[in-house]
């Protein structure tokens, strides 16, 4: 019996053969619940795009205004580390997709937890590398905040050769920290959310019938990856001198 018929009264779900203990009271069936939560995640991602969009706009405006300074400053990011991190993040997207697949086809909790755990591990690796990079910038005096910003004479000389003032380079580093910082914050939140999902997976909560939390988290995780896919070329590669590095 379709629950869309007029006789489907509230509270009757418990007696439905299809009723699942994950079904919330205000949905008619799991299908409707899945549709709603999936759409909800997409709408959330749309607002995230706009949230990051403000920073991307600022980046475009200032880069167009001062491309030389941005190229000079971006040269002090280590593109090799950035490329490594990109690979790590794409790897984590792959393991995430495999985790979603494992729940969809009903692989054992062990397999599900293996892929989810690998995702966390790769995410943590990314954050660790990012922290190392931040530390590097700190040592070089490139944190663009007040007295923390004191590039040494050697750097200032290098920039001056191409007519770039430390102030203009500072704008790049400010955008670099704002954009990668916001991205890292999203990764940290992601690691926070995945933890209860792993516990539930270990307890065998997910299978072909019900796996939306894993799927929705997968959407979020892929979205955070895609942000990085844009950040990496914009911040590390555009106008950089590959021979130099750091």
């Amino acid at each position: 019996m379709s629950s869309h018929t007029i006789t489907a009264e509230h509270g009757e779900h418990a007696e439905h053969a299809a009723a699942h203990n994950a079904l919330q009271h205000h949905f008619d069936n799991l299908e409707q619940q899945r549709e709603a939560t999936t759409l909800g995640m997409w709408v959330f991602i749309a607002q995230e795009v706009m949230f990051f969009g403000g920073l991307f706009l600022a980046y475009l405006v200032y880069r167009t205004r001062d491309p030389v300074a941005f190229a000079a400053a971006s040269n002090h990011l280590n593109w090799k580390i950035g490329a490594f991190n990109t690979a790590v993040l794409i790897g984590s997207s792959l393991t995430m997709a495999l985790a979603v697949w494992a729940t969809q086809v009903g692989r054992s909790p062990k397999v599900q937890v293996f892929f989810l755990g690998l995702t966390v591990l790769l995410g943590a690796t990314f954050l660790g590398v990012k922290a190392y990079e931040y530390h590097d910038k700190y040592v070089d005096g490139l944190i663009p905040v007040a007295s923390l910003y004191h590039p040494d004479a050697h750097l200032i000389g290098q920039w001056a050769a191409s007519g770039v003032s430390p102030q203009h380079a500072q704008m790049f580093f400010w955008l670099y920290f704002a954009m990668t910082g916001l991205h890292a914050l999203h990764m940290i939140i992601g690691v926070g959310i995945i933890t209860p999902i792993i516990i539930a997976a270990w307890r065998g909560r997910y299978g072909p019938e019900y796996h939306s939390p894993v799927e929705l988290f997968g959407l979020y995780w892929h979205f955070v990856d895609i942000i990085w896919i844009f950040l990496f070329p914009l911040l590390y590669l555009l106008g950089a001198h590959f021979a130099g590095g750091h």
């Binding site: 403000g54 001062d66 704008m171």
Partner: peptide, 28 residues
């Protein structure tokens, strides 16, 4: 979300003196 990030930038500029909107520091 756009006003959210904008207010965040104003707050950071006020607290950390970052010049994204400050003409003296190259901002607009």
């Amino acid at each position: 979300p756009v006003i959210a990030i904008t207010i965040l930038l104003v707050a950071l500029e006020r607290l950390a003196h970052i010049g994204l909107f400050d003409p003296r520091l190259g901002g607009d």
